[in-house]
């Protein structure tokens, strides 16, 4: 592992994004727009206060999943991954480089959504703003790490996009956003207990309803962070220097 190579990789990915302003606008603007839509679809501050923070946990997760899986797939199919594998670059250098670049992007995304939500949309939060930012960025990193991992199983960008419904929608349905997890059938609740997005949404719920940083919030944050790390390690295992 080398800090120089990791930072060079982050710089390179950010440079690629800089050449693609439309993607940046979409990444930062779409979640904000959705939040505005949500506020006026409910048109009732109490419901928005309940659902808004949950979606703040889901948006970065979903968007980073897509961006990361397509981005790394391009690296695989474009031959640049093979070139890097012949160079003195550790697999973790590459993945951490991606994590850092997309983490910064997630920060910008969350900052934009939060700024609009807390001012214009008047979202009510009882917990600290910093906790919400932390959870949202961890969600984004989890989405990114799962996207990296999923991209190993896709041969084409077509397939990579199909992984979004396959990896993400079941978690979305079971995370407690649509039906609270306690009210699901026991076997569905058991499934939702092992899905990382459930903890992300739980954490967001706590930030919005509980003042301060509780022990249970810390547990949720650790679970989400741990899952992101695990997915990153699994992603590293799928990057092979030698292929058939």
């Amino acid at each position: 592992m080398s800090v120089t190579v990791t930072l060079a990789t982050t710089r390179r990915i950010l440079a690629q994004l800089r050449h693609d302003p439309r993607t940046i606008v979409l990444l930062v603007g779409v979640p904000t727009l959705l939040m505005v839509l949500l506020r006026y679809v409910f048109d009732e501050p109490r419901t928005f206060d309940r659902v808004g923070p949950l979606l703040l946990g889901v948006f970065p997760f979903v968007i980073m999943f897509v961006v990361a899986s397509v981005g790394t797939l391009r690296e695989r199919t474009g031959g640049t991954l093979e070139r890097l594998m012949t160079m003195p670059l550790g697999r973790l250098d590459l993945l951490l480089g991606y994590a850092l670049a997309f983490g910064l992007l997630a920060l910008a995304q969350v900052a934009a959504v939060l700024a609009v939500s807390l001012t214009w949309l008047d979202l009510g939060l009882r917990g600290p703003d910093a906790a919400l930012v932390l959870v949202a960025v961890l969600d984004a990193l989890l989405g990114m790490a799962l996207g990296l991992f999923a991209s190993a199983f896709a041969r084409t960008e077509f397939q990579a996009v199909q992984f979004l419904p396959a990896f993400v929608l079941p978690q979305f349905l079971l995370c407690g956003l649509i039906v609270p997890r306690g009210r699901m059938a026991p076997w569905l609740e058991a499934v939702s207990d092992v899905l990382p997005l459930s903890y992300a949404v739980d954490a967001m719920q706590r930030v919005s309803t509980e003042p301060g940083f509780s022990g249970l919030l810390l547990r949720d944050v650790l679970v989400v962070g741990g899952c992101a790390l695990l997915a990153l390690v699994l992603g590293a295992a799928t990057l092979r220097r030698r292929t058939g």
Binding site: R12, A15, Q16, H19, D20, G78, G79, T80, E82, R83, T86
Partner: peptide
Amino acid sequence: VGYATQSPAVYADL
């Protein structure tokens, strides 16, 4: 060892 693949392995967007 330096290696150049047949189809250019560089980032087209950079």
